[in-house]
Write a protein that binds this DNA or RNA. Structure first.
Length: 195
DNA sequence: GTTTGGATTACT
DNA sequence: GTAATCCAAACA
């Protein structure tokens, strides 16, 4: 029972750092596919130069018009869809970028979608996991909340050790330790020394 | 109307 | 190391 419990929507009513940490170890489900979240990054809606909200009025409008738990999905580098969860709280709004999963279910489907065979190459990056899970621009604005949502999270069955690191692929506010990783996971996007 | 800069990935 | 490929925002 514990392992199939839906992650409380309160998770998305936390500040971005807390929410990003809480999502590590949760299971993301979409259709017949699922995977354990092993890597996330937090982006703050205010004061974070790396966040879309810093330079995009359309992103600020998204935050204003959507509820906590909504999907913020955008096309990066003209090629890859990246998926975030909108979080809203009294201590700050923001996004949690889903960066890597440990594949659990629907692996044949993931292999077909990705055109890759190896388990470690299915969801080991923000652009890869959206392909593997079948998430794209049509999912922008949809909700991660509720058992009937197109995608949703299950609570971790057991406590997970989380480590932090600096965020990947950004040039502004790059020194903030807002990347969260499941300790020891070999399914993360970029292995750093010791990781 | 044109330019610019990306929260990436796969291939050489 | 770097090509691929699209969009929002900024500039003219």
């Amino acid at each position: 029972m514990k392992s199939t419990e839906i992650l409380s929507s309160d998770t998305f009513r936390s500040d971005p750092l807390t929410a990003a940490r809480k999502l590590i170890g949760a299971e993301l489900l979409c259709g017949n596919c699922s995977g354990i979240v092993v890597e996330t990054e937090a982006y703050a809606a205010v004061g974070d130069e790396a966040a879309h909200t810093f330079s995009r009025p359309s992103a600020r409008q998204f935050v204003a018009e959507n509820d906590a738990g909504s999907a913020y999905v955008y096309l990066n580098y003209g090629m890859y869809w990246l998926a975030n969860v909108l979080v809203k709280s009294s201590s700050g709004d923001g996004f949690v970028l889903l960066r890597a999963l440990e594949p659990k279910s629907g692996i044949a489907t993931m292999r077909r979608r990705r055109g890759r065979r190896h388990l470690h190459d299915l969801c080991s990056g923000p652009g890869k996991l959206t392909i593997a899970m079948g998430i794209n621009g049509k999912d922008h604005g949809k909700s991660f909340v509720g058992r009937n949502a197109r995608f949703y999270f299950r609570q971790s069955a057991s406590p997970v050790e989380v480590i932090t690191d600096t965020r990947i692929g950004i040039t502004k506010s790059a020194d903030l330790p807002w990347r969260y990783l499941k300790k020891g996971s070999r399914f993360v996007s970029v292995q750093k020394k010791g990781g």
